[in-house]
Amino acid sequence: MSSDSNHNQNQYTPPKVWTWNPDNGGEWASINRPTAGSRHQQKLPIGKHPFQLYSLATPNGQKVTIMLEELLALGHKGAEYDAHLIKIGDGDQFGSDFVHINPNSKIPALMDHSDDLKDKPQRVFESGAILLYLSEKFDALLPKEHSKRTEALSWLFWQMGSAPYIGGGFGHFYKYAPYPMEYPIDRFTMEAKRQLDVLDKHLANNEYMADDEYSIADIAILPWYGNLVLGNAYDAVEFLEANSYKNLLRWAKQIEDREAVKRGRIVNRTWGEDNEQLHERHSAADIDHKLKDN
């Protein structure tokens, strides 16, 4: 008998009007609500650098710290940043200051306090928008040639639209749901494998997502799909037969070895080995100190 049958899921009939059950939702039930807005007063810290990042090292959070480290590696000193920890399990993302930056209450959230914005700092939310904002501000990590630029942006927006099926779909039901449910696991596994195949086929003929140029498209896709096939997310390598996606694995390992990627992915991380955790970053030395122990 399936897990669904054991929990009488086959007998469920949606009510005429949905009502919220705060106890239903698995590991994240304590913070999920069907309403937006702040839940408590909160004053966020502001460091000394141009960029103030409020985040956690989830895949979306890793995108931005990797991007900032890539910019610094390219010599863009104006990309210096403070990375402040937002504990989403504690509901920090629902504090008043955070909601002012991101009304959607999701990490990452960025404030640009650069000299040209001193009178009115710029907020940026949504990880894809942050990558594009930083790319345009520093004229970096986005191809100049029109066709390659278009390709990079197409893959960036593909990632933003597709990844919820991986995180909120496959990852949630395979890893975090209160109990195994056959139908949603089958449904989202099929979609996850289809997306992995999309990437694998594209990377059979391309070194990076935009032909031979490393870009914000690669930075966006790595923390979701690279981490998935490398075994850094959901413990699903065997279940998904991740080793069969040879081109995707080649690409993921190639990018994983970049120094800026190694630096960025540990920022705002609060789990794993101690030398893989850097709760907050306020200078390059903070990362240097952690990586020297590897």
Rank of each mutant, 00 (worst) to 15 (best):
M1R: 09
S3Q: 11
S3V: 04
H7T: 01
N8R: 12
Q11P: 02
Y12H: 14
Y12M: 09
P15Y: 04
E27L: 15
A29R: 14
S30H: 15
T35G: 03
G37A: 09
I46V: 14
H49C: 10
L53Q: 07
Y54P: 00
L56S: 12
T58H: 03
P59F: 01
N60Q: 11
V64P: 06
L68M: 10
E70Q: 10
A73Y: 06
A83F: 05
I86T: 08
G89E: 06
G91F: 05
D92S: 12
S96H: 12
H100Q: 14
H100M: 14
N102Y: 08
N104E: 09
I107Y: 00
D115Y: 07
R123K: 15
S127K: 01
A129F: 01
I130A: 02
L132M: 10
S135F: 09
E136M: 11
L141T: 02
L141Y: 02
L142Q: 03
E145D: 08
L156A: 06
F157P: 07
G161I: 12
A163L: 01
P164A: 03
F170H: 00
H172T: 11
F173K: 02
Y174A: 05
Y176C: 03
P178K: 06
Y179C: 07
Y183D: 09
R194I: 13
Q195F: 13
L196C: 08
D200A: 08
L203G: 02
A204G: 12
Y208W: 11
M209E: 01
G226D: 04
V229K: 05
V229E: 02
A233H: 02
A236G: 06
A236Q: 03
E238Q: 13
L249D: 03
L249F: 00
E256W: 02
R263E: 03
R263M: 08
G264L: 02
R265E: 01
I266Q: 00
G272V: 13
D274L: 12
N275V: 04
R281L: 11
A285M: 13
K290P: 05
L291R: 15
K292R: 10
